[in-house]
């Protein structure tokens, strides 16, 4: 079976572009704190969601709605409303991370398909099967801490479909379990849907040397002519002991295009592309390339060579935890 391409859409225009480029499935979120890409100018209001889903369905594509932050105590109704609205807009599934919200969705919206978000960090078959028994989940997005053989082992032990990230931004920490941004800026992926947010970034140019600060902490310095990547905490420059540099991860992005045949053999159902903050032209190009790749893999043909390189952040990419030596 052809693996499903699950593509991000931060705007209705990106959704339409992805559908036209051949995405099997689109994922998106409401324009509020209920989703983990809560950036200014991104995401969908209720009308846009309903129209976007109708457009996708008309063209034979599915839409998943990510409601994957952790509901704030006292304000859970906001998240409950998002699940209800996703169902009434016609969503094919919701992507959830919080146990309480999964429980609510299972009880109050039993007919709405439930996926477990990467933010839930379900990293082994025991936990995935627990979610299946307790909340009737049908798919899990695996955290980016697993190698390909480990993914194959999980698929051998569960009936739940697995979806894995293959392209785009790369969290090096287990997702949904990281408070680095909260510590430095007060904005948290889990609570606010934001990591290393732009309003906490400052650049300072001194004699051509560009310093990047996040929450007041200088985490990158570029000499004249050097590129200055966005100061994401886990990809910043630090010193420890007698070492300095990118101690956690280099400013790379994930590209697992070459692993598509192995991921297929490992029993993966769907390949996920990161980047709801990306432009529609970027999204369309990535979708076209990955669609060609999964179609080739299904036909037993070789992977198209180097198709994604020019789209990667800073021109440099990694296969991340899929290769064991990354650890």
């Amino acid at each position: 079976m052809v693996m499903e391409i699950v593509c991000p859409a931060g705007t209705p225009a990106a959704l339409r572009a992805a559908v036209k480029a051949g995405a099997h499935t689109i994922y998106c979120g409401f324009a509020d704190e209920t989703n983990a890409r809560n950036f200014p100018g991104l995401n969908f209001d209720r009308t846009e969601m309903r129209e976007g889903i109708a457009f996708a369905h008309f063209h034979g594509a599915k839409v998943l709605v990510a409601i994957n932050t952790f509901p704030r105590a006292g304000d859970e109704a906001i998240w409950h409303r998002a699940v209800g609205d996703a169902e009434s807009c016609g969503a094919d599934a919701v992507i959830l991370a919080d146990i309480g919200l999964l429980d609510h969705a299972a009880r109050s919206h039993p007919g709405l398909r439930r996926h477990v978000s990467v933010q839930a960090a379900a990293a082994n078959a025991d936990m995935i099967n627990l979610y299946a028994v307790e909340f009737g989940i049908r798919r899990v997005v695996l955290p980016r801490v697993l190698s390909v053989p480990e993914i194959a082992a999980i698929n051998a032990e569960t009936e739940v479909e697995t979806e894995v990230f293959v392209f785009g931004g790369l969290c090096v920490m287990a997702e949904g379990r990281c408070s680095l941004s909260s510590y430095a800026t007060g904005q948290s992926p889990n609570m606010n849907g934001a990591c290393s947010p732009a309003e906490h970034v400052e650049y300072n140019d001194q004699a051509g040397v560009l310093s990047a600060r996040l929450g007041g902490f200088t985490i990158h310095r570029a000499a004249p002519g050097e590129s200055a990547p966005y100061p994401t905490l886990c990809k910043g420059c630090f010193s420890a002991g007698d070492k300095s540099g990118h101690l956690f991860e280099d400013p790379v992005s994930l590209n697992a295009e070459h692993l598509i045949p192995q991921l297929q053999k490992a029993g993966v159902t769907a390949l996920k592309i990161e980047g709801r903050q990306r432009s529609r032209s970027y999204v369309a190009q990535v979708v076209r390339n990955f669609r060609a790749a999964v179609d080739a893999a299904d036909a037993g043909l070789p992977m198209p060579e180097g198709m994604m390189a020019q789209l990667s952040e800073g021109q440099s990419s990694t296969a991340g935890a899929y290769r064991k030596t990354w650890r």
Binding site: M173, A174, L180, L247, F248, A321, K324
Partner: peptide
């Protein structure tokens, strides 16, 4: 603040 599949201590010493 965070937990990872990667060991940063090992990485800093050039190991996996």
């Amino acid at each position: 603040l965070a937990i990872s599949g990667r060991c940063y201590h090992a990485r800093m010493h050039g190991r996996t």
